[in-house]
Amino acid sequence: MDFTFDTEQNALREAVAGLLMRAYGGDQRRTVTREDPGFDEKTWAQLAEMGVLGLPFAEADGGMGAGQVEVALVATEIGRVLAPEPFVESVVLAGGLVAAVGTAEQRAALLGPLAEGASVLAFAHAEPGSRWTATAAGVTASAAGDGWTLSGVKEPVQHGARADVLVVSAAVDGGTRLFVVQGDAEGLTRSGYRTHDGGRAARVSFDGTPAQLLGDGDADRTADVEQALARATVAYAHEAVGAMETALTTTAEYLKTRKQFGVSLNKFQALTFRASDMYVSLELVRSTALWATMVIDAADSTPAQVVDAADRARLQTSRAGRHIGKEAIQLHGGIGVTAEYKVGHYTSRLTAIDHLVGDGDWAAARLATRVSDHDTVEALR
């Protein structure tokens, strides 16, 4: 497989890297995440000016018509500096559902402002007591005249308190449909809070809240949600790759400069071996994430293959994130867990990514149920 990027993709990566490094190359992230909405609105607008927020959307909908590879490049640079902007949550996940399911009028009304940086979308899907399913149960939708109303609770909703528009999954007649709820809708209550990695989430309650059905007809949207979650999973894997790269680089530099018994720590073979193992984990997850990205972009990939690739990327990301995060802290010693030093923050973000759309154990269990779908081979003797 060819994992090299073309000239335009490299230019995109360098432009995004430059912007995010200026925004978060120092201690700015700590200042930005301390106050709501938890990200820099100016940086969000600058990403929009560069066309980043419209990357995966069709040009007819106000986007750039790019593919999953370009999304992956942006996500990697976000992870490299722990930029708190809700790119995956708003563009890949919520925006991706609008692009896949919405009518032409809905796409124009929702994706255009998102691509321009004038609007933030959030996907309200997770429910208290649920465990990474593609279906809805706790929030129900009822027909009300020519429209719909929603009742129930969604939590956690990433960036749900800041979002201008919510894309909500709800149970209808034994299936799952998608709805659009405006941020100022009647009967909508949002309680935002800070997460352990410095991000933002919210408890969102619906009490007869007016909603617009996303898309035409009465089709069950479970499969569409599954595909959107798979794409977000792969994008999160690339964000994790960026975070792991920085954690490893920071750790390697620390081993070169920190001295004990009169010599730098990288002179101790056991510590060097541990850093080498971190590198192996990083490259394994990088290659798996790139492969999954190419599966998504392949014209002949089936929905089942996309989900399978995302589960494989999730499993590898989970294992590598735990390994690299823990080793980065261990090899730094006590300073690794202080709020003033960054490796602990990278580990916190890697932990959050591991639980947003399904952790490693969950992915492994799903993959195990599909083992019999593959051909068997004779063991070597």
Rank of each mutant, 00 (worst) to 15 (best):
3 F>V: 13
5 F>W: 15
6 D>R: 10
13 R>F: 02
15 A>I: 06
19 L>F: 05
20 L>I: 03
22 R>D: 15
24 Y>P: 14
27 D>S: 14
29 R>D: 07
29 R>A: 09
29 R>V: 11
30 R>S: 08
34 R>A: 15
42 K>R: 14
44 W>H: 11
45 A>S: 15
45 A>Q: 13
46 Q>S: 09
47 L>D: 04
50 M>H: 06
53 L>C: 03
54 G>E: 02
56 P>T: 06
58 A>K: 11
65 G>T: 06
66 A>C: 12
68 Q>W: 07
71 V>T: 12
77 E>C: 02
84 P>G: 03
100 A>S: 13
104 A>Y: 07
110 L>Q: 07
117 G>D: 05
117 G>L: 03
122 A>I: 05
125 H>L: 00
128 P>I: 14
129 G>I: 13
130 S>Y: 06
133 T>R: 14
133 T>F: 10
137 A>E: 13
142 S>L: 12
148 W>Y: 12
151 S>C: 04
154 K>N: 11
160 G>L: 05
165 V>M: 00
167 V>K: 00
168 V>E: 10
170 A>R: 06
170 A>G: 06
176 T>V: 11
179 F>M: 05
181 V>Q: 00
185 A>D: 02
187 G>P: 04
190 R>L: 04
197 D>A: 09
201 A>H: 01
203 R>P: 00
204 V>W: 08
205 S>T: 15
205 S>R: 15
206 F>P: 00
207 D>G: 08
207 D>L: 08
215 G>T: 06
227 Q>G: 11
227 Q>D: 09
228 A>Y: 03
232 A>G: 12
234 V>K: 00
240 A>P: 00
241 V>N: 12
246 T>Q: 06
249 T>F: 04
251 T>H: 01
252 A>T: 08
264 S>A: 13
264 S>T: 13
264 S>W: 00
268 F>V: 11
269 Q>M: 09
270 A>F: 08
274 R>V: 12
276 S>I: 03
287 S>H: 13
291 W>C: 02
293 T>N: 04
294 M>I: 00
295 V>Y: 01
299 A>F: 00
301 S>Q: 00
312 R>I: 07
313 A>K: 05
313 A>Q: 06
315 L>W: 07
316 Q>M: 14
320 A>L: 07
324 I>P: 03
324 I>Q: 04
328 A>C: 07
337 V>E: 11
338 T>P: 02
341 Y>M: 03
352 A>Q: 13
352 A>C: 01
352 A>K: 13
355 H>E: 07
356 L>A: 02
358 G>R: 04
358 G>T: 07
359 D>E: 13
360 G>N: 10
366 R>T: 01
366 R>V: 03
369 T>L: 13
370 R>N: 10
371 V>W: 08
376 T>N: 06
376 T>I: 11
377 V>A: 11
378 E>H: 09
381 R>S: 14
